[in-house]
Nucleic acid binder design. Structure first.
Lengths: 239, 239
DNA sequence: AAATTTATTTTGGTATGATCAGTTTAATTT
DNA sequence: AAATTAAACTGATCATACCAAAATAAATTT
């Protein structure tokens, strides 16, 4: 069906038009990262709009991470951080989380993480090793009663394995998934005796494999770790 | 270094505080999707702020996809679409694109997609099969000169495989990755003779394996398909 | 009585102008 | 030359007024 009588007029609000204009300028590198935008008052004159409309456009751009606004100083084109994109993904996961997803999350991890461990073994840098080691010692030092912190640290370890893959796409992909874990881990792991010791040992095995660049061993060790998670979850379900 | 003398005062602007407040309410499901927010004037009274500050907070929330604003009607909590997150990712890649990402994307696909194909073989429904079949016939019917459409259809096939896994996390995870492909595929695939026929055959093999619930075959076939992509890319690099 | 049309009200969008509060810059003092 | 102070600039907030789209209520027509 042709939209013969589709809207002609804006449909876009004025502030949105302004937003697009500035966004386009940034996308087309007419405004480079770090560049300072004209002041609000100046932009108002240039676009011939009110401060209200202009400011709302600018607020949107800053909410999306395209510009940074510094009171008293000015507005600057900001280097879009990967964090902005990840935050957005995280928010999405957060809002669409539902505890029915837990087995599916575990399934994804079981499939993806061993391969990620393999990548890590192949590509890791010394810096990555240090981070992994720190995660392990953090876990050892962690107060056993602080299950929240424990969960965070464990996640951090897995995230560090992802980082060690040296593939930013892997990180972007997995980070939102890890962000969901603390909640469910707290749900599941709490009060499972001896779990911490097991986890530490498993982490150490994974670490050593990555350190020694033994991809297959890293793969296998990670399989074991995730399977354990699955077991505990199954146990938990029975209760 | 402890932040003994860290800032006490806001550091946050008023409109940001308002933004957080509303965002939290949404995250905590105190405001459900579809719920109508009080009108601007009402919210102003409730928060005891000016309309300006409030509106700027609302503009930010809408820019991030959390709420939808309808002139004359009201403001509604919107179902955060994965598209919002993907747009954010795409913007990121637009601004910081670097050709290293191409092999990294391929690497991720090579690791993840065969496993996804395996899941699909295990879990697919008849409806999934129909979708896969349609993607294949679409590709056959596609104008060979329309490389853009060709790329879109090929992506769609892979996305449909992900869907057939019947694991929503897989879908959410892979969608951002697939959204990155059209750009690079156009770059690479254009003018590769015989590529289309090969792709169709490969897709059909994958389809049959999924149809027959032959997980290993699906896995292997997908490995072949991605390796081919890698080959073509390597070839492309030499030029 | 039902359907249509017409006002009216509500809601968001834009425009001004004024004031407040950090930053930066220039002028002044030491 | 360095430190201090004052001025200018920049974004943040407020208050008011008015516009335009949409929803609702009222009046009119059928």
């Amino acid at each position: 069906m042709d939209e013969i009588f589709g809207k002609i007029g804006s449909a876009q609000t004025l502030s949105q038009k302004i937003e697009r204009r500035i966004e386009e300028a940034i996308r087309q590198k007419k405004l480079l990262v770090g560049a300072k935008l004209p002041s609000e008052r100046e932009l108002c004159e240039m676009f011939a709009v009110s401060r209200t409309a202009l400011r709302e456009a600018l607020r949107r751009l800053s909410a999306r991470g395209l510009i940074e606004i510094k009171k008293g100083s000015g507005m600057y084109v900001s280097e879009l951080k990967i964090k902005d994109a990840i935050d957005s993904l995280n928010l999405y996961y957060d809002l669409s989380f539902d505890s029915n997803l837990i087995p599916q999350i575990i399934e994804v991890r079981r499939v993806f993480e061993p391969e990620i461990a393999r990548m890590a073994a192949n590509n890791r840098t010394d810096k990555d090793l240090a981070l992994l080691l720190k995660s392990i010692s953090d876990l050892e030092d962690c107060d056993p009663d602080n299950t929240q912190m424990e969960a965070d640290i464990i996640n951090k370890f897995h995230l560090n394995v992802a980082k060690a893959s040296c593939n930013p796409i892997v990180i972007i992909t997995m980070e939102p998934i890890y962000s969901l874990l603390p909640r469910m881990r707290n749900l599941i792991y709490a009060n499972v005796d001896g779990e911490k010791d097991f986890t530490i040992k498993a982490h150490r095995t994974i670490y050593e494999a990555i350190r020694d660049k033994d991809a297959d061993k890293a793969f296998t060790a990670m399989v074991g770790q995730i399977n354990r998670t699955l077991e505990i979850y199954t146990q938990y379900l029975k209760k």
